[in-house]
């Protein structure tokens, strides 16, 4: 069995952050959280997470930007990006996938469903 998969959760809503942190831990992942884009960029560089759960609308750097950064970085190219956003327009979703995201989950979502999808993604 390999080392614990590293998951980075990025969201500016404290309750969502709190909930996902709890859930991911409980499902056996190594969880890191970032409250804004800057923090997130910082952490991805240092920790090289396997999965990044990304909110899009954040102050400072938005989720798309972070995704673009991850996908353009050599050492991060294996990291999987999962967007979770209240942006539900086709164009926004397409943009997410175009940037290389593995999943685009629209808010509000079921955490149960989400865990299942992330497990599939990593397996």
């Amino acid at each position: 069995m390999s080392a614990l998969k590293k998951i980075l959760v990025v969201d500016d809503d404290p309750y969502i952050l709190m909930s996902l942190e709890f859930l991911m831990k409980k499902n056996g992942y190594d969880v890191m959280v970032a409250r804004n884009g800057k923090e997130a960029l910082d952490i991805v560089e240092k920790q090289l997470p396997d999965v990044v759960l990304l909110d899009i609308m954040m102050p400072d750097v938005d989720g798309y930007e972070i995704c673009r950064h991850i996908k353009s970085s050599k050492k991060l190219k294996d990291a999987k990006v999962v967007f979770m956003s209240a942006k539900t327009k086709e164009a926004d979703i397409k943009k997410g996938y175009d940037l290389g995201a593995s999943l685009y989950i629209t808010k509000p979502f079921s955490t149960r469903e989400m865990i299942k999808q992330i497990k599939e993604l990593i397996a």
Partner: peptide, 11 residues
């Protein structure tokens, strides 16, 4: 509305 709903549901 989605943001608070998301956290409420998650929690």
């Amino acid at each position: 509305l989605r943001t608070p709903l998301t956290s409420i549901r998650a929690m």
